[in-house]
Amino acid sequence: MIFSFKPEPKYSAVALFFQNIQEKIFLYKEHILSTSEIYEQKLAEALTPLHEESNAKLIEVRAKHESVLRENKGNKDAELIALHESGLDDAEGYYQYLEENIQQEHDELHDFFNKSSLIMLYSLLESELKKLCQIMQEIKMSRIGIEHFSNSNYIKGCFNYLDLVIELPAHPLESFQTKISYLQLFRNRIVHSSAELSPNSTNEEKNLLKQALNDAKEAVIISEGQFDNKRTIKIYSKQYLLQSLELIADLFLTLYQIINHENNYLIVKEELLSFFSAEISDIEIIIDSHQHIKNGAKFQFTICQKAKTGGTEIIHLNASVSSAASLEVATINQCKDSKLASEVANQIKKKEKYFASIFKEWTIANPSMSVNITLYE
């Protein structure tokens, strides 16, 4: 066992926020997938013995049906006689009824879980946006807080506040606000009316519902009441939860990139400093430039190390990150006789996956990423 007495790296509040939200989103996804799997297992456990019993019974009654048909060959009512004496119709109907009841019970359990999970996801979105607003208020030292933007649409208030303190670009966030309005519609109906739709909805509400259902791609449906004509939102599939979680993850990823840019890539700088300072002492990292490329980004850094004998050694690091089928990390060291460059290259080689994770927010990962590093003087 190796013990290290180096102090834990200190991250800014905004860096910690984005680290924590990633972890929460991961745990929410695991919760959704694992719970849905339990429900699927329960359904299989209920259906398996029923199928075994029905298969055995149907083999018996079908044999009886064929036997009666042979006995009544030439009789125009042979089929009716065979169905009656064998009980084939009754047996098929009985087992179909039992299977449909089990499936319906399973669907309702899924619906209850998915609706409660949807409320949880919406609460996550609200609470985390509020935290981010409070952090940005401190960073910008603004006297105006999120409480000045509170209204019935809390999430819209958060967007308005973030727009004030960091000037959110309109285009990247328009699609998020539209899709969040769909999520809000389903959440509000679930919370305020047990998922029932009002027969007195306005044309605007009807149009929004139509758009939301189209966006859900059949993962959310409207159930018509068999006796009372009530229309109720049903979420039988976990796909809408995963779709909503992906929406939230993409939103915070976009906010991460915007806030990074507005704060001179503070979060990337902190994570790189934490990565290298674990093994390399007295270093400083300066971000010189950043540019977007197809499915990724390019960064240029200056790394400085104070020598014990005085003076400072300086090297430069270029990092190009983009999507890839699998993780690829390549390092080229063009520095001659530089101890600092050798240490940096060795640190990257030893912990390639960790190093690559620092840049994962800058790629459209399908399913992984490529990182190409060049060190030069």
Results as ranks from 00 to 15, higher is better:
4 S>W: 08
5 F>R: 00
7 P>N: 14
8 E>K: 12
16 L>I: 10
18 F>I: 02
18 F>C: 09
24 K>S: 07
24 K>P: 01
25 I>D: 03
25 I>L: 09
27 L>V: 00
30 E>W: 06
32 I>P: 12
33 L>Q: 01
34 S>M: 04
41 Q>I: 14
43 L>E: 01
44 A>D: 08
44 A>C: 10
47 L>W: 12
51 H>C: 13
51 H>I: 15
53 E>N: 12
62 R>D: 04
64 K>N: 08
66 E>G: 05
67 S>Y: 08
70 R>C: 08
72 N>H: 13
73 K>P: 06
73 K>C: 02
73 K>H: 06
76 K>F: 05
81 I>A: 03
82 A>E: 04
85 E>V: 04
87 G>A: 10
87 G>W: 08
88 L>Q: 02
89 D>P: 08
89 D>I: 14
91 A>P: 04
92 E>S: 09
101 N>C: 10
106 H>N: 10
109 L>Q: 08
110 H>L: 11
112 F>I: 14
117 S>G: 02
117 S>D: 13
118 L>G: 11
119 I>T: 13
119 I>W: 02
121 L>T: 08
124 L>C: 11
128 E>D: 01
128 E>K: 15
134 Q>T: 11
141 M>H: 14
142 S>T: 07
146 I>C: 00
146 I>V: 03
149 F>N: 00
149 F>Y: 01
156 K>H: 10
156 K>S: 11
163 D>S: 14
164 L>C: 04
166 I>Y: 01
169 P>A: 01
171 H>S: 12
173 L>M: 11
176 F>K: 04
177 Q>M: 07
178 T>A: 12
179 K>Q: 14
179 K>E: 15
180 I>C: 09
183 L>G: 07
183 L>P: 06
184 Q>L: 12
184 Q>W: 05
186 F>R: 07
188 N>G: 14
191 V>G: 03
191 V>Y: 01
192 H>A: 07
193 S>I: 02
202 T>G: 10
203 N>V: 08
203 N>R: 09
205 E>G: 04
205 E>A: 12
206 K>Q: 12
210 K>C: 09
214 N>W: 05
225 G>W: 10
229 N>T: 09
231 R>Y: 05
239 Q>N: 14
244 S>F: 06
244 S>H: 01
245 L>P: 03
249 A>R: 14
249 A>K: 02
250 D>Y: 05
253 L>P: 02
256 Y>W: 02
258 I>L: 11
261 H>E: 15
266 L>T: 03
270 E>A: 03
272 L>R: 07
274 S>H: 08
274 S>E: 05
276 F>W: 07
278 A>I: 07
278 A>P: 09
283 I>F: 02
289 S>P: 06
290 H>E: 10
294 K>N: 13
295 N>T: 05
296 G>L: 09
298 K>R: 14
301 F>Y: 11
303 I>T: 03
304 C>Y: 13
305 Q>D: 12
305 Q>T: 03
307 A>E: 13
311 G>L: 11
313 E>L: 08
318 N>V: 02
321 V>D: 06
323 S>V: 00
331 T>Y: 00
331 T>V: 09
331 T>D: 04
332 I>E: 15
335 C>T: 03
338 S>Q: 01
341 A>H: 08
349 K>G: 06
350 K>E: 15
354 Y>T: 09
359 F>K: 09
364 I>C: 14
364 I>E: 10
368 S>M: 00
370 S>A: 06
370 S>T: 07
372 N>W: 09
